[in-house]
């Protein structure tokens, strides 16, 4: 893979993570468990779709084939998406949503901390702007993991179940592959080797405070960020998200 291709791929990963998780959270809008939390989740969704727009626009420029944020979001199929498997998992219930968010935010926070010194100037500026938002997301999801983990018996059970189910999607976050290596060498990307211990530490600390048992590391499923094998959920997200652009091609909205 050429460094140029890796650069594009790397940006797609960042943009797609933000877009798909933002999309998932936006599904809660109007259906939240408490009006205040409806608003808070929509806030996070707004931040994430906003970040996705900046990154995808930049990715399109790096690619240099005239694709803008919307062409990248609306006209790629499942195999061309580069988000991690974790973020495409369904909302299920508030426990799944919060655990998914926390497991992602803890990673995303350290990732963006590192990207603040990227040699890609545009990416650095985006990371600088996003880090405040992501710090808030992490605080929000951490607080809710603790609250629900250490709330009632029922909430504890639901949280533990969500954690056990989603755990196998966390390995992909901090396991480097060719794209990560190339971007680290180029000074554009973050070192996943450095992020991993920080991630593990944050996750352990919050789970402990939440009185939740950390699942055995065990089998980890991957295939999202390299696009080799997404879960079946992504196809439905795209079918819905891309409907208008696919049904009425080439129009301005």
């Amino acid at each position: 893979m050429s460094p140029h291709q890796a650069h594009f791929e790397y940006l797609l990963r960042l943009g797609d993570n933000a877009l798909i998780l933002g999309h998932r959270l936006s599904e809660w809008c109007g259906h939240g468990p408490i009006l205040e939390q409806d608003i808070a989740m929509t806030n996070i969704a707004l931040d994430q779709v906003g970040q996705a727009r900046s990154i995808l626009a930049h990715a399109g420029k790096v690619e240099g084939k005239g694709r803008d944020e919307d062409k990248l979001a609306y006209l790629r199929d499942v195999g061309e998406y580069r988000n991690v498997l974790l973020v495409e998992q369904p909302n299920e219930d508030f426990a799944f949503t919060i655990v998914r968010q926390f497991l992602f935010d803890a990673f995303n926070f350290h990732l963006h901390e590192a990207l603040r010194s990227s040699k890609d100037e545009q990416l650095r500026a985006i990371a600088e702007k996003s880090i405040k938002e992501i710090a808030y997301h992490l605080r929000y999801s951490s607080e809710w993991v603790i609250r629900l983990g250490d709330g009632t018996e029922e909430s504890h059970r639901k949280m533990q179940h969500a954690l056990n189910s989603l755990w196998m999607y966390t390995g992909e976050l901090t396991t480097p592959d060719e794209v990560d290596e190339l971007m680290l060498e180029a000074g554009i990307g973050a070192s996943l080797g450095r992020i991993k211990p920080l991630y593990d530490e944050k996750v352990s600390a919050i789970l402990q405070e939440a009185t939740l048992g950390q699942p055995e590391s065990g089998y980890m499923q991957s295939g999202g960020k390299n696009g080799k094998m997404h879960t079946e959920h992504l196809g439905y997200i795209l079918a819905e998200m891309q409907f208008i652009q696919r049904a009425y091609p080439g129009m301005e909205w």
Partner: peptide
């Protein structure tokens, strides 16, 4: 909210999300 997931561009999606969120704020 029925159209948030199907908004035809990312700009429209953000605007609609923010709008529906405003309605929640008004409710509050």
């Amino acid at each position: 909210g029925n159209w948030i997931s199907r908004a035809p561009s990312l700009r429209r999606k953000v605007a609609l999300l923010a709008k529906v969120q405003d309605e929640a704020g008004h409710g509050l």
